[in-house]
């Protein structure tokens, strides 16, 4: 996994609530058998029309906005468990998604792919969106070690929560699987000692 420590970048605004994973990556693009190349179909049906021409009114087609931070409305990533949504967001070039809350499965998938799902208060989300509206090139700095989010325009610094284990994983690029493998003795012991009604 690609480590994440600190990032200063402009941001892309997507002030829509309940963005579901079918919008992030439609099901018809889930037929690949590798993790690569999903970025070209990120938000496919919002980005392109039936003739595969870019829709000018969609933010990813607007050259005014760019950057490695996506700022989205509440409940981002609801719906399907497809990790392809996180792969598409990462492959497109985003390292951070900011929202007032995330759907559980998407949040986990993002963290497992080195993408930081950063939860801010609804009022801070509004402030960030306003800053971008005034100046699309406005920069924001995310410092994972310090757990701070800085609006470089207003100078406002706020802190954010992340569990300490996941923070360590992101900073070092560790996967959960490495940790779980290190617990194999405990897993063996659990299997030996439990009363199991799941198989026989």
């Amino acid at each position: 996994m690609k480590p994440f420590t600190k990032l200063t970048s402009s941001a892309v605004p997507l002030p829509i609530e309940d963005v579901d994973t079918d919008q992030i990556i439609p099901a018809r693009f889930l037929k690949a058998v590798t993790r690569d190349g999903f970025g070209e179909n990120l938000f496919r049906d919002w980005r392109f029309d039936k003739l595969n021409q870019p829709k000018e009114d969609f933010v990813l087609n607007n050259p005014t906005y760019s950057g490695q931070i996506l700022v989205a409305g509440a409940n981002f990533g609801c719906g399907s468990s497809r990790e392809h949504a996180a792969w598409a967001i990462g492959d497109y070039g985003f390292r951070v998604v900011v929202s007032s809350y995330f759907a559980d499965i998407f949040r986990g998938n993002a963290l497992n792919n080195g993408i930081l799902p950063l939860v801010v208060s609804p009022s801070l989300l509004d402030e960030i969106l306003q800053t971008i509206e005034v100046n699309p090139a406005a920069a924001f700095t995310i410092d994972l070690e310090a757990q701070t989010f800085k609006n470089e325009t207003t100078g406002t610094v706020s802190t954010f929560d992340i569990d300490s284990y996941k923070k360590t994983c992101l900073i070092n690029g560790y996967d959960d699987i490495d940790y779980l493998l290190s617990q194999s003795d405990l897993i063996d012991k659990f299997e030996r000692e439990r009363i199991d009604f799941s198989l026989k």
């Binding site: 993790r35 497809r82 990790e83 392809h84 986990g108 959960d176």
Partner: peptide
Amino acid sequence: FGIGTSQVEQ
């Protein structure tokens, strides 16, 4: 519950 593919591998 549903899981992502990284978790399927785990």
